[in-house]
Design a protein around this nucleic acid. Structure first.
Lengths: 250, 250
DNA sequence: CCGGATCGTTGACGCAGATCAACGTCGCTG
DNA sequence: CAGCGACGTTGATCTGCGTCAACGATCCGG
């Protein structure tokens, strides 16, 4: 892909429609499926100038409970866990953010959430104040944030059903199903789907309101029932999504 | 409150700032704390002309699972349960809407939620298409919807913690606390707070991921522990919010 | 190649909450 | 006021999942 275009391609270059796109954003998923798609070229340039790429190692946190949030981010790749902590140490993961999700809580300075990388994560991070001011200028940007927030609300409510009313086994199956749907755009191949599990058994437990031991036992039970197959502890094949859906109680 | 103003007050009358406010909306809470506050006089008039007040008796549903949603509403008073159903009949309530909450899911025609009145409910209802077109014209309206959606997402995530990690007793205490905070703006009075419980024991069970029997037992247990007092099954006094918070695990 | 750390699995046992069952209380209607 | 249905309480018993404990697998640095 070396350019046939002239110099200065280090900063930006024209899009087909004549828009200027910052180099940094060229191949960024957030520009297509994420919130940045709302931004016209000049706003994107403004934002890209104040944004910075960050790499988080597994377990590092973006935002901690009680922190004042001073920046927002887009998830470029990897998985970010959103979790809550009770005073006595019990933990619940309340959401997972995949690329190109937007990370942040507009209109509120401090968060009661912890956002932590599960596995290595790349972020595109920008100052909160600047982004909120762009939201005020740019209704389309706010519109995208709203659309994503509504999606997340739907997901959270699905998960409330899972947490409140499903058995341990159904919870595990529901989680596997969610990961499968997130990783495979669709499974046209005849022989089932192969997925990588982004969470440890401990994190799965915190996500599903279970213990590590129960997670492990139910994974084994699903394997024995031939609903899933193990390539390793973190890599699973699903012969039939139908069967998995049935196991998830849906 | 007979008017000192001239005729035509049946349709609308001027606000202090010269804005015209439809009669229907004059005393409506949604115009102050709810989404309609975003609308300038003429838009409010446009909306009021196509909106209609509805009264639902306890148990009647606004929207059913799989329905195509053709209207949105504001809750004027009462409580609306949002619930989900599993194919085998298990039910989970995933949210409660109080006045002046907005009811509806923009940008999606069909809902996987059932919205049902808990006790009698008054709604102000308007056609979906018209409202969405007003959202496009009016960024401030979309902004309010976003703000409310973010609040609901926060609440949903709090509830995920409750469902996933709290004991039956803590769940009940958390619910009572939520109702107390919703009904009493603040409790300056020395002798605790009195609250009415909008949900039956069965609905509390569906909200908390428990059974009726466990709800009943834990209510009794909290009473015996002097955390709450009963006036009747549906009317409770809370001598100390602190004690209730402790019982809720916070 | 070994020792430790981290992660996952498996087993034995106990308990919180589900299930099954009976009964009390209210409000409505005939 | 009798009879019925919806709602709530309480007791006895059962069970799914948590708890405690031991052990296997993998990876790492020395």
């Amino acid at each position: 892909m070396s350019s046939v275009r002239p110099k200065r391609s280090d900063v930006h270059h024209p899009e087909p429609d004549g828009q200027v796109v910052p180099k940094l954003c060229e191949s960024c998923e957030a520009r297509h499926r994420g919130v940045c798609g709302a931004l016209p070229g000049d706003d994107l340039l403004r934002l890209s100038k104040i944004s910075v790429r960050k790499t988080l190692k597994s377990g590092e946190s973006v935002v901690c409970d009680e922190d004042d949030v001073i920046s927002f981010s887009n998830v470029l790749n990897g998985v970010v866990k959103l979790s809550k902590l009770l005073p006595d140490g019990r933990q619940q993961i309340v959401g997972l953010q995949f690329a190109p999700d937007f990370l942040g809580r507009p209109f509120r300075a401090e968060s009661h959430l912890t956002a932590e990388a599960s596995g290595d994560v790349h972020l595109c991070s920008f100052p909160r104040a600047e982004f909120e001011s762009m939201m005020r200028d740019n209704p389309e940007l706010e519109h995208r944030i709203l659309a994503q927030t509504l999606e997340q609300l739907d997901e959270a409510r699905d998960w409330m059903m899972t947490l409140g009313r499903k058995t341990a086994r159904e919870k595990i199956a529901s989680y596997l199903l969610m990961i499968a749907r997130h990783s495979a755009p669709q499974p046209p191949s005849g022989q089932g789907v192969a997925i990588d599990l982004p969470l440890s058994r401990g994190d799965m437990a915190d996500f599903l309101g279970l213990t590590i031991e129960t997670v492990s036992r139910q994974m084994t039970a699903l394997r024995k029932a031939k609903v899933i197959e193990f390539d390793s502890a973190r890599a699973v094949r699903i012969p039939s999504l139908r069967a998995l859906e049935r196991a998830a109680g849906e």
